[in-house]
């Protein structure tokens, strides 16, 4: 493992893994407590439409994915406000259409072979140095936003109605959350791919929630867990020549079941608390 660190691509991969784990820990915590896991899955898949569009028109796929993801996030947010009862259906529809659009656009792009797998399952080992800078900036934006609106985010997540009554602009705040989710999702696509984004966004916060007493604590613990899962997965994938994104997720999955089992044992024994 250590000799691998002499490679630029490995250093970039580690850095990307750590940074993405931090933003997934922060945003994932908000996604979990606000129950918008399905929306974030929808954003991740629909973002592929933006990747296809970028190839078709010849600009940066990251930019395409970001624009598309934010756009889709706004639409999904508006839908979930307007027609609450069918929001999940419409999110599912956009999810599928976005993906289909991306694939067709890539089909239509002349003479260009795109490695689909790297978008579906991530390509942490090919993250270029320039993207590391973008990830750092996005991380800072997310961190600052959450720090500034921390108590408002807590109120909205815990008791939306009360937050509205005391005058918190719940709707704009919700859209800010969706926008940040879109950015986090686009970053995470590089690491584990769009199919597996949901896992990195939900597993660490879900475990962390049980061991923390505040939303901030949940975010910190989720970030740390995410870093362990990502680096552990990266090491395993390097050692055994496995697909990195899927390995990271399986490591997280094993963590999920271990903590789940610990929780069950504790609950049954009734020893703790």
């Amino acid at each position: 493992m250590w000799e691998a660190l002499q490679f630029d691509f490995m250093r970039n991969a580690l850095l990307a893994g750590v940074l993405v784990s931090i933003s997934c820990g922060i945003i994932g915590s908000l996604v979990v407590v606000n129950r918008i896991v399905f929306i974030s899955g929808g954003i991740a898949h629909a973002a592929f439409g933006g990747i296809g569009l970028a190839f078709f028109l010849g600009f940066s796929p990251s930019l395409g994915a970001s624009l598309f993801a934010v756009g889709v996030a706004i639409i999904m947010g508006a839908v979930s406000f307007k027609s609450k009862h069918r929001a999940d259906t419409i999110i599912g529809v956009l999810w599928a259409i976005g993906m289909a659009l991306g694939i067709i656009l890539i089909d239509l792009t002349p003479g260009y072979h795109v490695d689909l797998m790297s978008y579906l399952f991530g390509s942490i080992l090919t993250v270029p140095g320039s993207d590391i800078w973008i990830i750092i900036i996005l991380n800072m934006v997310i961190l600052l936003t959450v720090i500034i609106f921390y108590k408002e985010f807590i109120a909205m997540s815990y008791d939306e109605e009360f937050a509205f009554i005391v005058g918190i602009p719940v709707k704009p705040l919700y859209f800010i959350l969706l926008g940040m989710t879109a950015l986090a999702v686009v970053m995470t696509i590089q690491v584990v791919g769009l199919i597996l984004v949901i896992a990195l966004l939900t597993i660490p916060p879900y475990i962390a929630e049980k061991y923390t007493r505040s939303l901030g604590g949940m975010m910190v613990l989720a970030s740390i867990l995410g870093i362990f899962f990502t680096l552990g997965g990266l090491w395993l994938s390097y050692s055994y020549d496995l697909t990195s994104g899927a390995t990271i997720i399986l490591v997280a999955g094993v963590g999920f079941f271990i903590f789940q089992a610990i929780g069950l044992l504790k609950g049954r024994g009734g020893i703790t608390r």
């Binding site: 807590i154 815990y158 008791d159 929630e209 505040s214 939303l215």
Partner: peptide, 9 residues
């Protein structure tokens, strides 16, 4: 009973 698992004091 709302959000009873929410980590909040």
């Amino acid at each position: 009973d709302l959000n009873i698992t929410f980590p909040i004091s």
